[in-house]
Nucleic acid binder design. Structure first.
Lengths: 147, 147
DNA sequence: GAAAGTTGATATTTATAAATACTAACAATT
DNA sequence: AATTGTTAGTATTTATAAATATCAACTTTC
């Protein structure tokens, strides 16, 4: 049980292997990252490392771009609509000063969050980042908070 | 007061005038319409007619496409995330059979809604369609239902 | 009833997002 | 210490979304 999760989330693939698994170029992977679509693990040496969960996430992003024809800016905007404040349960005060809560163009995990509950969080480990990478999951979350 | 609203919503411009006001071609307007991004008024003769509010809505769509670089499919997906069920207050039963509630690729106003509270609604007149054409308003709505 | 405008539909062009190809410096692996 | 892979850049190519052009039938307007 736990073992499965560990192997899902353990960063084991270097970027070249990830690129092969996804059938895209190394550079495309870095472009997605630069755009804030995902966050790879980084080793002390600054080299990226990808888990199986990372690969699945990126497959989902690819599908949005190539099948659903949603542009990267479109995906970022959709991510920006995730009601993260409900997931991390931040305070009213935090929300007031949160760039992500008050914006609608970039995912929350692309911002720094000085002086909020998210300040010292590792977004790569956050439920907001991990649980809502797919469109239907975003909508499910919106549904769940509205009942 | 009311007068202002009437003049805002009264369909008075033929498509050629709308195109000139927006500085785009007639065909582009029809393309946006075919994609379900907006719904113009139609006269008995089947000819389209645009209000000032329609023009403003389309300016917003243009900005999303040209400045924010969100593709039309991206815009449709964002519209599909509007929690319309909260606005029209449809029943659980309605939701179960609603293609829009259960999908996440097209705005609710592009579906027929047989056997639901929306069945006989004119979407062009609906708050869902009118109040949430802009991204920040969609996010505001998501915020408001989550408190 | 003639002129101007609109309809839908298809074919074509244009603009640009997405992806690739370079580079030289640095890191890892053997 | 030599080979292989990674890094962050910029420059270029490719794929395709967005916009335009053209058409003949129909509608409105004066």
């Amino acid at each position: 049980m736990t073992e499965i999760n560990i192997s899902q989330n353990e960063p084991i693939f270097p970027i070249s292997t990830a690129a092969k698994l996804l059938n895209i170029s190394v550079h495309t992977l870095r472009m997605y990252e630069r755009e804030g679509l995902f966050i790879p693990y980084k080793k002390d040496s600054n080299q990226r490392s990808y888990s199986k969960a990372d690969i699945e996430r990126i497959e989902c992003i690819r599908s949005a771009i190539n099948e659903s024809k949603i542009s990267m800016n479109g995906i970022k905007t959709i991510y920006s609509l995730i009601p993260c404040w409900q997931v991390v349960k931040c305070s009213d005060d935090d929300r007031n000063k949160c760039e992500s809560y008050n914006g609608h163009s970039k995912p929350c995990w692309t911002y720094r969050h000085p002086n909020t509950v998210c300040e010292n969080k590792n977004c790569r480990m956050c439920d907001v980042y991990n649980n809502f990478s797919e469109c239907h999951k975003v909508k499910e979350l919106i549904k769940s908070i509205s009942r």
